[in-house]
Design a protein around this nucleic acid. Structure first.
Lengths: 151, 151
DNA sequence: TTTTTTGCAAAACCTTTGCAGTTGG
DNA sequence: CCAACTGCAAAGGTTTTGCAAAAAA
């Protein structure tokens, strides 16, 4: 059920507009669904399904992991949510932001840097020119060594 | 046991030099080990551990999957083998080639393109200048749409 | 009431590990 | 002979699925 057929992003930054988006597609507003949204609104960087299920370490009620995955999937299908794969380890989810985000992740220390897509347009242009390849770093980030770890 | 502390690559292109590399470190030459090497020598693109265990679809004897993983790990530790993660799905293994390889993978059709690192030096330079980030696309490739799928 | 969603348990997928037995050197 | 290696079985980490019960509309 992995939402790979990415629907256009539908950025929201408050609970009410998120709920409106759900209602407008006939999706229901359940406690579990609301909790996933609360977690994502509270998080300041992409979080794992497990962190959400654990109530962000006690700050919110816990919920069932399978339901969290299902809800993240649903929310991603309607464009409210996006997820990134940071090397090994579980995927990380965030609310879709206006203008999406692309990522750079450090292989050594794991630090994640989100950038605006236009900051990578030069890179994209080079890759398009050299290989006819249209790169996207929103779902699978650029991996390497950050300024700190580079020594 | 994942060999993340990448030893310098030790490129070989025939069984004899691979075996010599093993011997020179006091590693043993078992039937299972030899089979992994045969598979990698026979493959023209990176293969999964399961493909190796299955004897590349009948072309070679089958072997035990856990041992295949262990042997790939050992071979990677001494620099004879490298592996890439292509989006979702299992990792893919190949003999280390002279001058390593970096990869571009198409999100839509899955086609894998291996390039010489210097072909990506421009990209790397841009990322270093803009973000102080040293990108490496050898273990986690650049993901996007290939020329065909880009329409 | 009807259809969606939940919670739990189980399975699927990829990879690692423990261990007793085998084998290469 | 003995350390290295194997094969098997079991477990670990992440994600999906089946299904009966619960809840939203």
């Amino acid at each position: 059920m992995t939402a790979s057929h990415l629907t256009p992003a539908l950025p929201v930054s408050d609970m009410d507009s998120a709920l409106a988006a759900l209602r407008s597609r006939g999706l229901r507003i359940s406690a579990a669904r609301r909790l996933v949204l609360e977690s994502l609104l509270a998080a300041d960087s992409p979080v794992t399904a497990e962190q959400i299920a654990d109530g962000l370490g006690g700050r919110l009620p816990r919920s069932d992991l399978a339901s969290v995955y299902r809800n993240l999937d649903t929310l991603e299908e309607i464009g409210l949510v996006r997820h990134v794969h940071l090397g090994h380890g579980p995927g990380r989810y965030a609310l879709a932001s206006a203008g999406e985000r692309e990522y750079l992740v450090c292989d050594r220390c794991g630090v994640l840097r989100a950038v605006e897509p236009r900051e990578l347009d030069g890179v994209r242009a080079q890759l398009r020119a050299a290989f006819g390849f249209e790169a996207r770093f929103e779902h699978f980030p650029i991996v390497g060594l950050c300024a700190n770890c580079r020594d």
